[in-house]
Amino acid sequence: MGSLVVGSLMQAISWSGAAVVNLFVIGRDEAPMADSDFAVSGMRPDRVEVFPLRDDSVWDRTAAVREYDLVFNAPFPDLGAYVEACLRRAGSGADTVAWAAFEGSFHFDHLLTDDVADQIYGLCVNGRDPVVTWSSDVLKSEGWRRQVREARACLERAFPGAAEA
């Protein structure tokens, strides 16, 4: 992983001052993840903010949808390993899809769609290994959009009709 790519990623996730990893999780687990669940790869966020997300007009009510903002006040050495470990942990629940994305990318009308694929830098679908990339070339590629579409297809299988955009 080149320092230029990591540097631009750090700028993107640190636009507000602190570095914030935005992790989105959709699954059947009613209880939110605990702060201690994000102490992985030898790192622990300084603060974890949890936001339940809901859109009753389009969303399957059996799904628990949450955003976790993992806030770091100081730089950290291996962002890739950390995000991968968080995605693995978050994506371990039944019928769960988890992804890491830039601030402002989440909207129920655009869950894991092509138009936001280049804003999603990590994915994990229950039963699979997480995939993380920091390369802007990869994020803009057809291969990455295909991986995002596959995650959306898993979401639609788990919650039929729930992800209609």
Rank of each mutant, 00 (worst) to 15 (best):
L9V: 13
Q11I: 04
Q11C: 05
Q11A: 10
A12D: 09
A12Q: 10
I13S: 03
S14R: 04
S14P: 01
S14G: 14
W15L: 08
S16H: 02
S16A: 06
G17L: 02
A18E: 10
A18H: 10
A18V: 04
A18R: 08
A19D: 03
V20L: 00
V21Q: 00
V21K: 00
N22F: 02
N22H: 11
L23M: 09
L23K: 04
F24H: 08
F24S: 02
I26G: 04
G27T: 04
G27H: 06
G27A: 06
G27W: 02
R28W: 02
E30V: 06
E30D: 07
E30C: 00
A31P: 01
P32R: 09
P32H: 12
M33V: 01
M33P: 03
D35E: 14
D35V: 08
D35F: 05
D35Q: 09
D35I: 02
S36F: 01
S36Y: 01
F38V: 05
F38A: 06
A39P: 07
A39K: 12
V40R: 15
V40Y: 04
V40N: 07
S41C: 15
S41L: 09
S41W: 09
G42T: 12
G42C: 14
M43C: 13
M43H: 12
R44V: 14
P45R: 08
D46R: 08
R47W: 07
E49Y: 06
E49W: 06
E49H: 12
E49Q: 15
E49L: 15
E49V: 14
V50F: 07
V50Y: 07
F51A: 14
F51G: 05
P52C: 13
P52M: 10
P52A: 15
P52I: 10
L53A: 04
R54M: 13
D55W: 11
D56Y: 11
S57V: 12
S57M: 11
S57C: 09
